[in-house]
Write a protein that binds this DNA or RNA. Structure first.
Lengths: 218, 218
DNA sequence: TCCAAAAAAGAACGAACGGTCGTACAATCT
DNA sequence: AGATTGTACGACCGTTCGTTCTTTTTTGGA
């Protein structure tokens, strides 16, 4: 592939982003923020336009339909999630250390908060779990990805002998996911940050229960 | 209080429900169903009217505002939850047996499904956790009630010596809640009933870890 | 600097939203 | 039976929704 043929859409010859691509990014940033707090259905094109001081059609043109806007918003949220949670974990060597780094990054991302409405996916999963369609499929797929990555990290730790060989990785991933997710949700609902710590403690205990001597030594 | 002064609104002199009260019940039943799947904001007065073949104003008159409709819907859902989850547990003697009955009833209620959109509260908690107002307060209060009841059951089991004396009841309640809740949510999102079992297994393991010899004997 | 293409604006649409009103009928109480 | 209250109706308000156009402005490459 030569340079010309693989030029990306929305990118100018000197590599800078085209104007349209920049506004698209701005729109999606705000869209993900709104959706994390008010849901992907609470998102509206008119509101985005008003808040960003763009015309309604100016927003609309970038996506062509509300469903496309929702899908793009999910993709944007995945990007943010990867950056704040997955990337920090990948910077740590494989094994139990990476598992810990991953869970810590996740909890930090929920608390900061990167999104004003807590974890984007916690909100939208509950919103779309009983509503068939492309948006739900996208959310479900991203959720499978996330859980797959968590399981991979756990499996690496097990292969290193830092986690007991008999540990049930998918089950463990499910439980860790459930504890972190719910802790953040409750903390937000009751406006009580101590509920984050409850999740942290539960995760800690759950990990301690499967950690081997080899895991503790490092 | 004599009979006359404590007459309830919506109840006629001979104790029967007034007509209005009956339609109100019908409306709220449908409202709770819709809200469990599409959220309390997805609920609309016009849609309720169309589906129930009542005029829009006929629906509206019963509540006076959308917020009141949402609050009444939450109250209705609490009633349904009590009936399907709390009541069956109360029919079982205090102790670990009641804890088990409670968690079983909860999981049964999620699977049946009593509400078409899974657990009403799972959906609405995530919807309102970052949205201040009376509706959120009502949801948060009902959630506190539920957790209070779960903790009470656990404490009774502990006092009977069926659960270890050192068990941290609020922490345990949080974890059991998180596991059941998330299991149901994932089962719905991925359309995979085996995820319910994952929650069941996690709960089972969690309970087994704190059960004493006395608890196992019965 | 010029010009085509890209991006944004603007106006308008039909539908649905929450909400208000006056009215008509039916159920309930005296 | 008559008086009264409860209940539901249909028309309509202003607003916002997603979406479709046409027109204007901005932008980036030659």
């Amino acid at each position: 592939m030569n340079e010309r043929s693989c030029r990306l859409v929305g990118v100018s010859t000197d590599g800078r982003l085209l104007k349209g691509e920049r506004t698209r990014t701005v729109i999606l940033g705000r869209a993900a923020d709104i959706a994390s707090a008010e849901g992907l259905e609470g998102l509206s094109i008119g509101r985005l336009a008003t808040e960003l001081r763009i015309s309604k059609s100016g927003v609309f043109t970038h996506f062509g339909s509300k469903e496309e806007l929702q899908l793009a918003t999910v993709a944007k949220a995945v990007e943010v999630f990867r950056e704040h949670v997955v990337a920090p974990a990948l910077a740590v060597p494989e094994g139990l250390g990476r598992v810990r780094a991953l869970l810590e990054a996740w909890q930090r991302y929920q608390r900061e908060p990167v999104f004003p409405g807590g974890c984007f996916f916690h909100s939208t999963m509950a919103e779309f779990d009983a509503r068939p369609g492309r948006v739900r499929d996208a959310i479900a797929a991203s959720q499978r990805d996330w859980r797959g990555f968590l399981e991979r990290c756990l499996r690496e730790a097990r292969e290193r002998g830092e986690i007991g060989a008999s540990a049930d990785v998918p089950q463990l991933a499910f439980e860790l996911d459930a504890l972190c997710r719910t802790g953040a949700g409750h903390a937000l609902l009751h406006d009580d940050p101590s509920l984050y710590d409850r999740a942290t403690r539960a995760v800690e205990a759950r990990l301690a229960a499967v950690t081997t001597g080899a895991g503790r030594d490092r």
